[in-house]
Design a protein around this nucleic acid. Sequence first.
DNA 1: CGAGGTGGGTTGGATTTGCCAACTCACTGA
DNA 2: TCAGTGAGTTGGCAAATCCAACCCACCTCG
Lengths: 142, 142
Amino acid sequence: MAPRTCSVANALDVVGERWSLLALREVFFGNTRFDQIVANTGASRDVLTVRLKKLVATGLLEKHQYSEHPPRHEYQLTDTGRALHNVFLMLKEWGDDYVTQGPLPLVYQHSCGHVLEPRVVCAHCGEEATLESLSRAGEPTH
Amino acid sequence: MAPRTCSVANALDVVGERWSLLALREVFFGNTRFDQIVANTGASRDVLTVRLKKLVATGLLEKHQYSEHPPRHEYQLTDTGRALHNVFLMLKEWGDDYVTQGPLPLVYQHSCGHVLEPRVVCAHCGEEATLESLSRAGEPTH
DNA sequence: CGAGGTGGGTTGGATTTGCCAACTCACTGA
DNA sequence: TCAGTGAGTTGGCAAATCCAACCCACCTCG
């Protein structure tokens, strides 16, 4: 029996390896150079090299030269990479609420002026997309 | 230099290992028994055993006996576990949009009647919490 | 010029993690 | 008794990760 096909599994094939999401976190934070990512994530250099290569190859990051002499590169988000920020936010929210103990290392303020409390809502009605509020929508879209 | 503390890293310490999120996916879908999770995820039995034990130990799942003769167990979500559904939804959304090719394996309908299009919004103002709309909120909360 | 620093890797060996096939145990029913 | 079910457990191997050291190109400064 073959395991189920699933977009979550497909997504994890791309970003589920150790250090990938934390590398992206650093780029979200504006730290785009190799050594910054190494230092802030704790990843070993060889694994991070492989991870960044894959994130570039799968279209989440682009490698840009920011200095010709000496040649220096940084990693920039693509739209695909930026779209993962939603996952990052919800993972951070869960980590804040249920894992991290003591003072929160990072608190965001939203542009409306309040401390950010992120919610996942339905784009149509604005109500929360809770587990209980969802049903399968019949046939898969073709 | 020590890597940064971060709730995302803390969260990944709990659910970032191979198969953990997919095991939870099965429980979200209502498949709560060991063999169902094995079959639908593709995880090997020994790794899944270890993963489920950890998800129970860290409070995301509870192991309940559903049959005394013979003794049979199932895994149920706790509130902590259920709260990860938001991460699941945003990961699925990203996977749907950027990774999965061809027909989507699963499409949700929201209780409002529309096909679900999940968004991450600020609970206060209802506007989207985009990367650009966030700033650090000064000192960490104590 | 040489030493030291920066950026971004690469390498070999050790350790850890995951996979696989087979096995185990308890229990049930024919 | 045998076969099936549920839920693991085990030994061996493959793959992934870690770690320390090294490498190369380039630059600056004494």
